[in-house]
Nucleic acid binder design. Sequence first.
DNA 1: GTCTATAACTCGATAGAC
DNA 2: GTCTATCGAGTTATAGAC
Lengths: 201, 201
Amino acid sequence: MQRDSSTEDRILASARKIFLDRGLEGARMQDIADDAGINKALLHYYFRNKEKLFDTIFVQVVDEFLPRIFAILNGDQPLFEKIKLFCSEYIGQIIQTPYVPMFIIQEVNRDPQRFIKKVMHGKHPPFQKIIAQINQEIKQGIIKPTNPVQLLLNIISLCIFPFLARPMIQTVTGMSNKDFFHLMEQRSEEVCSMIIYSIKA
Amino acid sequence: MQRDSSTEDRILASARKIFLDRGLEGARMQDIADDAGINKALLHYYFRNKEKLFDTIFVQVVDEFLPRIFAILNGDQPLFEKIKLFCSEYIGQIIQTPYVPMFIIQEVNRDPQRFIKKVMHGKHPPFQKIIAQINQEIKQGIIKPTNPVQLLLNIISLCIFPFLARPMIQTVTGMSNKDFFHLMEQRSEEVCSMIIYSIKA
DNA sequence: GTCTATAACTCGATAGAC
DNA sequence: GTCTATCGAGTTATAGAC
């Protein structure tokens, strides 16, 4: 709780924290109010209801996360450089905000329509360019013939999954938080070289 | 709803369906009762409360899912065969029950203690054998020097992640259910050959 | 075992004073 | 803008008849 910032900002910061931790259904307006140092009534004064408050946070979180993927994938670098960039930037980013991937996946699963309406609406399919690039580099003989969609799935899977399954991984292996994040820092390089090795001609 | 089976079995079948679809917090006892063709009071007669009913389903689902992983990983085949087995068996299995991975991940995230108490308690760490095998095959020169934990993470990530992110993937790419499952059927072979290619000496 | 009725409680939302 | 007090809907859980 930050007593010095404006009420609305404190609400947003607290809502983000609680929603990221527990999702829409798990979060309690009371807990958000407590964390922000105000009462429930004031939450409704600023954001008319729970849904609207959640929407604000959801869009905020998704809009600072997904564009990073697409920005790198749609850049102008050669494919190998993109992959390298993606792995290091992306895993680095998730290490800073490890709850974000699970939050997004969970909420898109619970209500895909919200995602379509609030986030995707009006945006064009963001994978066109990278798919074209993959096909072109195949034709040029830089990489082996590869299904572009599978390749993209591979990259994203390898980077994100461990953070989704983190509680289970740590439970099953007995890793501490420190162990886990250390493993993830190594992983960036690991994933990158594996992907590139698997596709280079 | 199966009118011919016993009440308890019908409750379990309905609870499984509803809990898998919506999780502990999203599921309503009323919906489970409706689906089973009985009333709420009878749910409490058979399973004292929602938690206990959920625990039963959770343990059931996890116990028929995780052991499949461990059985293959702890078998006696050479590593390459294990990986091949794992990819085909595992993706094939998930295609049959595509909601299971998300259900498990979500509920372990929400309450890791339940997982520890109800599932892991008393079981020994299940990755010892496969890790030893990986290290041995490295020493024998069959596979390249590799961090065993990263390798296992890679295999599991590649197989499971697409099913966790399925609603988002289908939204972003515009794939139909049929398209998606077709892609996943190809994927088994795809993942297998990629992994093996990346580690063979 | 199975039902109806309802108690007990949680939680989002609102009224109204300051 | 911010608070206290309270309403009312929705849910789990129980009492008690059959």
